[in-house]
């Protein structure tokens, strides 16, 4: 199948790539852009490990044809924060045990980031609902909720500090 030239905006960077039209965004991220933080855990779009933000909305990269997402702002886990400035959801996931094996983590971080952007103080039920399409086999979800709560606290503290200065 012949390739076609597509333009993607990922984590604020503009890319021009030649890919076949049937190539999934997930595979383009992982294979063409080396952004392997986005994972494939299933083959029927049921596990959430491949979640990415499309214009701020969490979606499944395994359902998306890369060529169909050219006019969007895409964010992967690699775009959430940097090693020296982790996003609050990232640091809290480590500190509160949200990541055991880590394979589902990027998907959860994406869904959580989107949730907190819309609703900075979600209730536990809202957290459960927002994360209900992301499967985790390790934690039983308890430490994931702890991680979300810690992220909320940290984001609030950062905001307060920002407002104070």
């Amino acid at each position: 199948m012949s390739k076609q030239l597509i333009k993607l905006r990922v984590n604020g960077e503009q890319y021009e790539l030649a890919v076949p039209p049937n190539k999934l965004l997930l595979d383009v991220l992982r294979e063409d852009l080396g952004l392997t933080g986005t994972k494939r855990g299933c083959d029927d779009s049921s596990c959430g490990a491949c979640s990415v933000l499309v214009d701020g909305v969490p979606m499944l990269a395994c359902v998306a044809l890369a060529a169909s997402y050219q006019d969007c702002e895409l964010t992967t886990v690699e775009g959430l924060g940097t090693l020296d400035a982790l996003h609050p959801v990232q640091s809290s996931w480590g500190d509160a045990g949200g990541a055991q094996c880590g394979f589902c983590t990027s998907g959860f971080l994406i869904s959580t980031k989107a949730l907190l952007d819309r609703n900075p103080h979600p209730s536990l039920d809202e957290i459960r609902e927002a994360l209900s399409a992301n499967l985790c086999r390790c934690t039983g979800y308890m430490q994931i909720y702890e991680s979300v709560k810690l992220a909320i606290e940290r984001a609030a503290a950062a905001k307060a500090a920002g407002a104070g200065s």
Binding site: T36, G37, V77, L86, Q90, A99, G102
Partner: peptide, 21 residues
Amino acid sequence: LAMIESGAKVTGLGKYADDLS
């Protein structure tokens, strides 16, 4: 104590077998 490799996991920079090429 946070797991020592949690930085690699939360940034997406850690490599699992299928991430290698």
